[in-house]
Design a protein around this nucleic acid. Structure first.
Length: 581
RNA sequence: GCGCCCGUAGCUCAGCCGGAUAGAGCAACGGAUUUCUAAUCCGUAGGUCGGAGGUUCGAAUCCUCCCGGGCGCGCCA
């Protein structure tokens, strides 16, 4: 199925050829409703290239343009824009095609890639906190969208399960552990002993040294320390899994840092052998002397004491993903502060000859009402699990107010879908680079660009079909997919609100692929908001069940399609649509 | 010091590989409801796009400089 945009673009290029002109400019959605549905600046670009009058060129192009039954005769406007307005019957026809398409018109990509997406990546021995929302939610949405477009996606949780912090955890485990607390709330106890050890270590050099010794023993494979480490990892994983269940986020592999331990020496040897790495002040370092940006920013891959750091691990990870997982594309959904680090890693990988497409997908921070990094009152990170539970609790309270007659089970289920959806949508609906201020009130509002607003549009649709089934059961059946009844899928678009809604539905296929251009799910979120808005307008203006045939069936079909696009769109963002709310 | 990111309505944000008179939502004000869930819709008002130059038919968007905020820069991850 082709979108209006690609159809018009083809006809434009035909018209240009017939007018003896080369392809130029682009055909895009109109910037303003006044200008119709689509516009092209082709004549402006050509006018500039050949120093001719753009308006005259535009007229020449229009004269050759085969509008067929797609649109009204194009018009020239402004400095030389050509504007296109779709015909209602063309929209009805296209919407019918979308309706009969499993994929709602979204084309599969022509160049399938194998993409490893590195996102989430929490640290062991620390609970997940609010800072993990963006990476987790953004990475998951990108994974869903890439997969839907037909790419081979491998979701990888690069867990921070190795590193110097374990010296302290093990020291704390051996000296400060309270077994009962550990049984009650394992992660809380591990965090406690870690913090306490950390405090002691900053005061007491002897403790610091003891921690270092524990770390050395762990890295040397000491049985006892390995056992302790394993236990800590297991406890942390339980906590992560709980959060992932709440969020409905799942990974294909979870290769944490420790997974790469035995590959690290080879990385350094390789770098030394190829001359990319060199010894400097006892450490193995990669310099970037020819790159102004990195000239004074060397990358250490083996410390003076022989230990490895996270640059080494990330290089081993590159090798594993490219050579073992056969990835040709790797997306790192990691906060902006690490951009220097990834520049270095990507540059080293390039020098070593890895040709995969590496992207660091950065994002801004989540701020509290005080516009500073979001923290608890005592200045600590806000635990994610508690935050998500509170989202559900708050959603539940609103449900109790608005719809108290729902069953207990329904309330719990809906509160979960709304609460989690609200948190995710609030994040995804904003441009990923901007810092945003966390606000319960805004994300759970039923008005404006929020998850509940979109979910409500879906609920209204489901409600119509519940009513329709009661009054006329056969309509429920006839809207099944694959039904050959010709009355189904025939759209009659008379009202302005119907035309607008149908037009929006046709745009879904144009929007989804755009998200991956610059990794912006907010484009999709924005579209869904506009779709829900168009639906609500339609809902107010056009009675469905009370209207006469054939409008009634047509409107039911429109509702059905809107529901499916909303549901699919939300699903691509990792958000669920409840039937009632 | 060097580098990266951000600065758009009172508030929260879109728009940024150049396009027409810069858009939403919230808050404010004015309307619509014997409802297919008003959990909504329609309307009004609100702007030197941080500032100054430059590039051109055209700049919020591209380039340079400046101001303001955030972050990062050799042995943590």
């Amino acid at each position: 199925m082709e979108t209006f945009q690609s159809l018009l673009a083809k006809r434009l290029s035909d018209a240009l050829a017939k007018a003896g002109l080369p392809n130029a400019g682009e055909l895009t959605p109109a910037t303003d409703r006044r200008f119709g549905d689509y516009q092209t600046n082709a004549a402006l670009v050509l006018g500039k290239q050949r120093s001719e009058n753009p308006q005259t060129l535009a007229e020449r192009v229009i004269a050759q343009f085969d509008i067929g039954d797609l649109c009204e005769p194009p018009t020239v406007a402004g400095a030389g824009f050509i504007n296109f307005t779709l015909r209602a019957d063309a929209i009805a026809k296209k919407a019918g095609e979308v309706l009969r398409d499993e994929r709602l018109g979204v084309a599969r990509t022509k160049s399938t890639r194998t993409i490893v997406i590195d996102f989430g990546s929490p640290n062991v021995a620390k609970p997940m906190h609010v800072g993990h929302i963006r990476s987790t939610v953004l990475g998951d949405a990108l994974a869903r969208i890439a997969q839907f477009l037909g790419h081979e996606v491998i979701r990888d949780n690069h867990i921070g399960d190795w590193g110097t912090q374990f010296g302290m955890v093990i020291y704390g485990w051996k000296n400060l552990l309270d077994r009962q607390s550990l049984q009650r709330d394992p992660l809380a106890e591990i965090v406690r002993i870690y913090r306490e050890t950390n405090e002691r270590a900053t005061r007491d050099p002897q403790v610091r040294e003891a921690c270092r010794q524990e770390l050395v023993r762990l890295q040397a494979g000491d049985r006892e320390n390995i056992d302790i480490w394993n236990e800590c990892v297991a406890f942390s994983m339980q906590d992560f899994e709980h959060v992932y269940t709440l969020l409905d986020v799942h990974y294909d592999i979870q290769c944490g840092e420790s997974f790469y331990n035995d590959r690290l020496p080879a990385v350094v040897e390789r770098l030394l052998k190829s001359g990319i790495g060199e010894i400097s002040e006892g450490a193995v370092v990669v310099f970037f002397r020819d790159q102004p940006e990195l000239a004074n920013k060397p990358c250490i891959v083996r410390k003076r004491d022989g230990g490895y750091n996270y640059a080494t691990t990330d290089l081993a990870t590159v090798d594993y993903r490219v050579n073992d997982l056969k990835a040709d594309t790797v997306w790192y959904v990691v906060g902006a502060p690490q951009s220097l680090h990834f520049k270095q890693i990507f540059e080293i990988a390039r020098r070593e000859g890895y040709s995969a497409d590496f992207r660091h997908i950065t994002f801004g921070s989540i701020l509290g009402e005080d516009r500073k990094l979001m923290k608890t009152r005592s200045g600590e990170n806000v635990p994610l699990r508690g935050l998500l539970e509170e989202a559900c609790k708050r959603a539940r309270k609103i449900i109790e107010e608005k719809n108290p007659d729902l069953s207990e089970a329904d309330k719990t289920d809906i509160a979960h879908k709304i609460g989690i959806g609200a948190v995710k949508y609030f994040d995804l609906s904003q441009y990923r680079m901007t810092d945003y201020i966390f606000s319960w009130e805004k994300m759970l509002s039923l008005q404006g660009n929020t998850a509940p607003y979109l979910q409500n549009a879906y609920v209204r649709i489901r409600s119509i079909f519940r009513k329709a089934d009661e009054s006329a059961p056969k309509i429920g059946k006839s809207r099944r997919r694959g039904d050959t009844d010709s009355s189904c899928g025939e759209l009659i678009l008379d009202d302005r609100a119907e035309i607008n809604l149908a037009k929006r539905l046709c745009q879904f296929a144009e929007i989804v692929p755009q998200v991956l251009n610059d990794f912006r799910p907010n484009i999709l979120a924005n579209y869904l908001f506009e779709l829900a808005n168009s639906f609500h307008t339609f809902y107010e203006a056009c009675p469905v069940l009370k209207s006469e045939e054939p409008a009634r069936s047509s409107r039911l079909t429109l509702c059905d399609l809107t529901g499916r696009v909303l549901q699919r769109g939300l699903d691509l963002l990792g958000i669920k649509a409840p039937d009632k709310m």
